[in-house]
């Protein structure tokens, strides 16, 4: 984007013609920092809560599907059906049951993150080397300790990949919350669109991308820190 007309001299010279409506304006950010930081923190806390809740639900579900392969089909199938339903429709279906915007968006986000996480954790668990599992069993590990000390740690790369995918798509999905008036940075997008204020739209978009990027980097670093044995392979 080449238009960066944020300089104050532009308003002085354009006495004729439409008022300047630049896509990027630092003055906008300074004047509206209160609104921006409120939307930003709403966005970040919603994303973090949704992904953590989804992980808490996905871990036992994936372990269940791993231990009882007969359940894997139905669990993945049900979450697949859910994934096909658009977020907008899901939020609109939950809201008339709960009448609370924040809970509505949160539940919706958890449901979408769930599929990605369950799928990736299951792939990770299934990818654990059979020989390693047999060796661990040979040393006398029970099923619980096997899961906690052998299988889950070895599935970590796949789990972290799932977490990154779920987090990045959750950051984008939060904006759909504008349908119930709780969309984090999406609220700024929508307000900017309704008042045709380009700086507001562009600022909200850039901040959304930044939130996704920072979250992705943090999770990548976390994954690297948790799997020191895997470092040479990337």
């Amino acid at each position: 984007m080449t238009r960066t007309g944020a300089d104050p001299t532009a308003t002085a010279t354009t006495a004729v013609g439409p008022p300047a409506n630049p896509w990027f304006s630092w003055a906008y950010v300074e004047r509206n920092w209160g609104d921006i930081s409120t939307a930003l923190s709403q966005h970040v806390t919603l994303t973090a809560q949704a992904v953590l809740l989804a992980l808490a639900v996905a871990l036992p579900l994936a372990v269940l599907a791993y231990r009882l392969p007969r359940l894997a089909g139905p669990i993945l199938g049900a979450s697949g059906v859910l994934y096909t339903v658009p977020a907008l429709a899901l939020f609109a279906m939950i809201y008339p049951l709960l009448w609370d915007p924040r809970t509505t968006v949160l539940i919706g986000l958890v449901m979408y993150a769930l599929l990605v996480l369950v799928r990736n954790i299951l792939v990770g668990l299934r990818g654990v080397d059979r020989g390693v599992v047999e060796a661990a069993r040979g040393t006398g590990l029970g099923p619980t300790r096997m899961l906690l000390t052998v299988e889950l740690p070895l599935a970590l790369p796949s789990i972290v990949t799932g977490l990154r995918l779920a987090t990045v798509s959750t950051v984008a999905l939060v904006t759909i919350g504008i349908i119930v008036g709780y969309g984090g940075l999406g609220q700024l997008l929508y307000r900017g669109f309704n008042s045709q204020y380009r700086a507001e739209i562009a600022t909200a978009t850039v901040l959304t991308l930044l939130v996704a990027l920072v979250a992705d980097m943090l999770l990548l670093a976390l994954g690297r820190a948790l799997t020191p044995w895997d470092r040479g392979r990337h």
Binding site: L165, S169, A172, F193, Q196, R198, I201
Partner: peptide
Amino acid sequence: TNTTLALPTLALLMIFAS
């Protein structure tokens, strides 16, 4: 492909519409 996941559809929609 992975990068486009991060861009909200709504954002691009509103940028185009404005």
